[in-house]
Write a protein that binds this DNA or RNA. Sequence first.
DNA 1: AACACTCTCAACCGCTCCACT
DNA 2: CAGTGGAGCGGTTGAGAGTGT
Length: 534
Amino acid sequence: MRRMKNEIEDEMLPNNMTESQLNDEGPWTSSEDAILVDYVQKHGEGNWNAVQKHTGLLRCGKSCRLRWANHLRPNLKKGTFTAQEERLISELHLKMGNKWARMSAHLPGRTDNEIKNYWNTRIKRRQRAGLPLYPPEVCSQAFQESHQSQSTGGVNSGNKVRHDLLNSYEIHDAIIDSMKDNQGISPYVPEPPDISDYNKMLKGLDSSQYCNFASSSSPNHKRLRESTMPFLGSSGMSRNVFYPFDHIRVNASDKIAQSFGMQSPLDHGPSLHSSMCYSHSLSNGNSSTSKPTSEAVKLELPSLQYPEIDFGSWGTSPPLPLLDSVDDFVKYPTPISTMESDCSSPQNSGLLDALVYQAKTMSSSKKHYSDEISNSSTAIPGHRADSSTLNMYETEWEDYADPVSPFGATSILNECPAIANANSLDETPLDQTFNGNLVKLESADQVWTPNSEDQSMSLLNITWPDILLDEDWLQQDSDNSKNQTIRTDAMSTLFGDDLATDYKHMTDVASKSSQVWGFSSCARNHSAFCLSGV
DNA sequence: AACACTCTCAACCGCTCCACT
DNA sequence: CAGTGGAGCGGTTGAGAGTGT
């Protein structure tokens, strides 16, 4: 279309003027194209800033490079993407995230811009349709590849834990990229508090205020670039640095959200539910939240959002009643407008909103599904035999899950049995060492795997120094300073002093709160969820 | 036919990385 | 080692086309 317009413009040009004199920006004319092509044929690609000097084109080097790369270079493939290409893009996006240039290297003749545009429009389409992004076969393949890379390393030692994680860096990198990317994916980019606020919040957890912090408001509403975020940003950390820190920085910043698990032990249902929602939301990177203002929202989905994949509903899952669409959701007039400022990470922020929203949903629908449960005395099809409270909530979750909802998607229990299993009160003992400290490792065979689908998920339930999260440990005498020191040292070794300190504080709080179960389960679930790459 | 809305995509913008000095 | 400029990348924008009412 633009080309047609350009051609018309060419014809209308005054005879004594060249297009290059008329256009210093905007659409390229065919004459400009010809000049550029001629230049490249003579001088080759590169040195784009010299184009203007040599040809008189009033285009900057950037513009020339872009024009050449996207439209003029030979062997460019135009037209709609083939099914093969679409699948490849899905696979690549699953692995790489929004690395369009890298993806284009795998698609001869396709430009990064083209792929990007395609993906973005596809996202919007699928979001509107309430469908998952990735075909199940693509996801399964990713799972298998991830598992293979993990299984080659072994899980028998702490060092190997690191080694495994590094081995599977590629795919985990995609997760991180996605999580980073998804800071822009969430309906808005949450505002992380500064560290002092964050510490205040942590301290606040020491008291009963923990349940109120969500409504407190931080005066520092700063929108920071990721690189400036103390927990999400680089913090001097390269992406290529020890990978788990990327998760930990999420975990650490999610301590607030963990407080959602620190509710009354008598209220396990919502706790479970919250923690699941929490983990899911985070791992999606699809931090869900409702922006209180009417600002335009930006929606995007991450790569590797395994939990969002509804294996049985690719292309078929209809929009669900509560969250008909993301658009609807983000317009949801949440009353928790100040929460975002208190969250320590974008992911976290989205999580909190999501949890509160979920709580509201749960509250409002409690009667509904309790009626449902009481009415359905028979087992729910497709649910596990030992249908428990957990399953009750699972059912509820499924009822309200939307594959593309900011909360996440279809039942997290269906999609991630590792998480479901992690909710089990059957805890594994401390049995491994990690950097000289006790480490409790979750092995894949401890994961509930009722069917093949779930097996593929459970395989990803890789190791993690659960000593950092283990409730047994937390439940130990909080006065046992030696144990705490070891723990903090382990944290410090792994993640740095700041996080270790935060961790210690949280464990102190947890110990004092007598609500350890919810906390540690939540934390455990999240860590397992994140580290398993699901 | 007119209008509103959505979709597509080319182009731009801001940023980071890297090589060079 | 710091500064600088070029190249490349990812996100965003805006115009035109398409579609629905």
